[in-house]
Amino acid sequence: MTLAAADDVILEVRDLVKHFPVGGGGLFGGPPAVVKAVDGVSFAIRRGETLGLVGESGCGKTTTGRCILLLERPTSGQVIFEGRDLTTLSPAEIRIVRRKIQVIFQDPYSSLNPRMTVGQMLDEPMAVHGIVPERKARRERVRELLAVVGLLPSMVGRYPHELSGGQRQRVGIARALATEPSLIICDEPVSALDVSIQAQIVNLLENLQEQFRLTYLFVAHDLSVVRHISDRVAVMYLGKMAELTDRAALYAEPLHPYTQALLSAVPIPDPDVEARRQRTVLGGEVPSALNPPPGCVFHPRCPIAIDACKGAVPDCREVRAGHRVACIRA
């Protein structure tokens, strides 16, 4: 299961499983139904790289991120961050580790506390973790953080509702940076923003990565943005890893039929290109994670499925160096 040279791996996720019980267990007993949000996912992130995690809604990409952040307790599996398995830590130890793993959320409107000013939001984590114990120095540091994310120092006294969407997302990024993390989980950080602002934020994230040597897990559904920002890309479908490889390989030569369909579904802003494109439009919809199909979870929608796909769950195996695919036909 070693996916990369052990020395430069910052985070390794091994056989991560997260099942949510729903209903059931009530008056009439019966085993509660289980949503298999994440079902045996493994990957590693190297220090300083960006791993894109893509898939459609309900594929488990966000839950994977939340498990790494320990916002959800994994049902089973390991989350090894800088050599320590986070799932075995005590609450006190977790609180310390959290400094090093931060998160940027999708919705810049609901991810900032409406009752706190920008200054308070940035000050608090530094105070709590004792990163900058002295109050005056902290105030200075807050201004620095604002400058780093491209905001004016005069914003410290503002409340979130006084800011535009792009500005709020910058505050969210500054808050994530306040604890000096080494890994940031970016959960759809640009998909709620206006198109003209998205590029600003993507550039900001890239610049910050260079400046502070950050590692990103970039969770998104927009394949064009993921291609732009990621070094490697993992594609998830219905709680499972479908394909994981280098950016270039994935976009030039996708091996999993789902990845191929996903790529061909992305609209390109050019009518001429659109007219020339060969597209595979997938039939059907993503099945419910409550009752995933047997065998390969993708087989009911797969254009190249054979009988064997209905029986065996395909391993996410390495077909080429650094290119893993969960498809027996790849």
């Binding site: 931060q102 609901s110 706190m116 608090e124 604890t179």
Partner: peptide
Amino acid sequence: EMPYVDAARAAGFSHARIILRHMLPNVM
């Protein structure tokens, strides 16, 4: 369910701080 509460948890804040400082003002 608001992401800012998740953000507070992810920042490693104590339960008391999240309840008193992050959630209570929002049920004002």
